[in-house]
């Protein structure tokens, strides 16, 4: 049945009256997701849109629609801290921070609250989550979502947003499809990592294999590799790591924190690939190889 979303998913959109919020609302409704409420912090421009009631605060929204259990946040960056806090305190179990460029300090503070209140957050700058034919929280592919994503056995976890539509299209064309796609967000410090989502896919019966899409920088691919190596994983994992060429650039064109002792060597794609491979993950050279590799490993399994 996929992870994180189901037929009981009731979404609140915090920041429904921002430009991006409005777009997200349209996309989710077009995908027939249940959007229980919209919150417009700057004041209400409208009370109801396409059957979705709008409120000035999440508290009001939850009072009217207590079934709310997922939030998509599209408020401006400096308001994310407050919006996320409000959602966590209201007991929302899954919070997708769609907003990009959230200050690091706020990310750290939100994450600490999430640990205390036991909420799962994605982002910042996560496009969202989709379980095809069931629900889409956020937007993966905008108006194309209906035509791109096909239901199937592969769980997808990605640090990149746009690429998941390509990957999903490749899987569909290769006779496979996706159980759930989870975008982690694109910033250096993320609320949730590959490991958090791998744990969820491990328990999902529909998911027969997991695809990881990683990038240069950050520590989460290496963390996933170490975790898989230490704990094992009952389902096959295939990964693609983008940006390998970065490791071959001459010194002096090093990308990242030059002269910074602590982060030196952290986040190199070659290192990530090496670690993933030694943990038993199949790392593909081209995204286009992904369906064939899955067909092969799933048949073996």
């Amino acid at each position: 049945m996929g992870i994180l979303l189901d037929s009981e998913t009731n979404i609140v959109l915090q920041g429904a009256c921002t430009r991006r919020g409005w777009q997200l609302l349209e996309d989710m409704l077009n995908y027939s997701a249940t959007v229980a409420a919209g919150v417009c912090y700057g004041g209400l421009k409208t009370k109801v849109y396409r059957g979705v009631p709008f409120f000035k605060s999440l508290k009001q929204a939850v009072e009217t629609a207590p079934e709310i259990n997922v939030s998509v946040i599209a408020v401006p960056p400096y308001e994310v801290l407050g919006a996320a806090q409000e959602a966590m305190e209201a007991g929302v179990r899954l919070i997708i921070v769609h907003t990009a460029d959230v200050p690091i300090k706020d990310v750290i503070l939100i994450r600490r609250e999430a640990e205390r209140l036991n909420s799962l957050l994605l982002g910042p700058n996560a496009d969202g989550v989709i379980t095809p034919d069931v629900c889409m929280a956020g937007s993966l592919g905008g108006v194309l979502a209906l035509s791109i994503h096909r239901r199937g056995p592969i769980g997808v976890i990605s640090r990149s947003n746009g690429i998941v539509n390509e990957l999903s299209g490749l899987l569909a064309a290769g006779g496979l499809g996706v159980s759930t796609i989870v975008t982690l967000g694109t910033e250096r410090i993320l609320f949730s990592s590959f490991v958090d989502i791998l744990r969820l896919f491990a328990d999902d019966e529909e998911t027969k294999g997991v695809l990881l899409f990683g990038e240069p920088g950050g520590a989460y691919e290496a963390e996933a590799a170490d975790w898989i190596a230490a704990h094992g994983y009952a389902k096959p994992i295939v990964a693609y790591i983008a940006g390998k060429f970065i490791d071959n650039l001459a010194e002096g064109t090093i990308l990242g924190h030059r002269g910074v002792v602590i982060e030196r060597g952290l986040g190199s794609p070659t290192d990530k690939i090496r670690r993933l491979q030694s943990a038993g993950v199949r790392v593909v050279a081209f995204n286009e190889d992904i369906p064939a590799v899955f067909q092969e490993v799933l048949k073996d399994g």
Binding site: S160, N161, G162, I163, E166, T186, E187, R188, F213, E215, P216, G217, G218, A242, G243, F245, I246, L249, T253, L255, G256, H257, E263, G267
Partner: peptide, 25 residues
């Protein structure tokens, strides 16, 4: 940006110009 690339253009010295649009592409 989060990838640590921190730049939008890197000269690589070859002969095929690349313009890619969309995250990670």
């Amino acid at each position: 940006d989060a990838r640590g690339t921190r730049r939008d253009f890197v000269h690589l010295g070859g002969d095929i110009g690349v313009l890619a649009i969309g995250g990670s592409i």
